[in-house]
Design a protein around this nucleic acid. Sequence first.
DNA 1: AAGTGGACCTGCTAGC
DNA 2: TGCTAGCAGGTCCACT
Length: 314
Amino acid sequence: MASTVLQIPLLESPMPELPEVEVLVQELAPHLVGQRIETLRCSGLPLRRFNGNAKALEPLIGQRVRTVTRRAKTIVIGLDRHWLLVHLGMTGNLSWSADRSEADAVAHAFTHAAVQKEGALHRHWQMRLTDGLLAYVDPRRFGDLCLVPHAEGLVGTNSNGVPSDATLGLQGLGPEPLSAGFSGASLHAASRGVRQAIKPWLMNGRAVVGVGNIYASEALFRSGIHPALAAGRLSRPRALHLAETLVEVLKEAIEAGGSTLRDYRHADGSIGGYQSGHLVYGREGQPCPACGRPLRRIIQAQRSTFFCAGCQRR
DNA sequence: AAGTGGACCTGCTAGC
DNA sequence: TGCTAGCAGGTCCACT
């Protein structure tokens, strides 16, 4: 029997930043919506806040999946009576196996000894749905899982089926970069009075969500903005340019992430993705693609930043 | 209040 | 060959 297996290729893939999460949601949604959770298992190892105890997830049994969406990098699975929030952290990965016999075999192999034997180490929870198995694998356990009950009498979603941030306990997040709520004007307004360097500021999620270490470096390079520029000194024209560039970089990555998943589904072993499209990230010492000067790496807020001292100005 | 830096975690790699 | 140290990074939280 042919099986359908969806997942972001583990470890070889780019970090699960917003584009990877977006692609995963798009791919998972049609498979999960309408299915009922039948059983679930946990490894017993804690994630960031989830204690690893399957008991905490037992209320989910019997509930049907209504929606699969995301807010920033958090995957939001809408069920009959709960929201299930899944964060992939750095190395998290959600996979869907639609082959029932394969799903049963994997479920059987979930005990720790068997997991090691089957090479499926780091599988922290899994749910058997009507027609397959949803599994979460995360070697570094930076990811998380959270169950939020629907508020009394409130299924609470907007027209896209996305609940409010307050409903999900995700207050304080900025606008989605690919939404109408984000623009050069909003970015410029948010940056007023900020003394923090623009690169870590972009990553803090208040002016815009979903910009991780990789895309922050890439967008600043393409915008010609020095990563150490104080955010509050960003001129309005440069803010407009940066916002456009951020959207461009993320859209390109979503497109590339999609092709990565399709490659993976064909199981041909090829892993492309946006990684090959990085102009500066991970390229310390290599020539700048624009001017040829060696690219530099500095540490900002304990994170590597890659940039060109010739092309990027304060 | 804003900003900084430590902690979490483990696979991988460079260096000895 | 085998060991150790350092690095990677999203998010939370304590501290300055």
